[in-house]
Amino acid sequence: MKDFDSLVGIWNEQKTAPKVDYKEVIFAYKRGRNKLSAKLLREALLMLLALGAIAYVAASVDFDFWTSYLGLGLVALCCAYFVVMQFINMRKIANSNTLFDKPADHIRFLKAFKQSRHVQHTRNYKLYTLFVGLGALLYFVELFYKMGPLTMGIILTATAAWFALSYFYFLKQYIQQEEAKLQEMLADLERLNQQFSADEL
């Protein structure tokens, strides 16, 4: 039979030491920061490229229908929204100082962050798809009059098929996975929150 003091004695006997050196931490920080900046820059550049292409089409092609401009504008807005949201999320994570908060507050922040991501990935993503689809449809109105019915039929079918596949298969699958993961995380965080709650005592 051992009492708690004996356990502390055993604890103090341990020779376990971290394998991490302070230099590694500094190196990891520099490497991580560069990696994150590179990722951000790559994503921003790709989306800016897409925006540039849309702007070029809008400026160089003399469309007869206003619907074409509106369609291109909608798609451009969707691209801009994607980039802005990406930056907002990154900034939120980088600026969050909840690590210094009390654990219960930190857990509350994590829960709120998870829920906002969930909304973003489900409701906002649906709206995003809807607006991109609407933009494409408006753009196709003019093309419909200029291209032959066969070509237009093929383009429309291919676009509709891609949207249907994205919405009904990829998005549903993504939402299901996200839901299951979120549910599990929220349950864990809820349990942790209770553990740190003084009312429990």
């Binding site: 909840t98 690590l99 009390k102 930190h106 942790l192």
Partner: peptide, 15 residues
């Protein structure tokens, strides 16, 4: 405090 919160956040990454 950072360590405690980092440990708790660990759940987020890996169940």
């Amino acid at each position: 405090r950072i360590a405690v919160n980092t440990c708790l956040t660990y759940l987020k990454k890996e169940k």
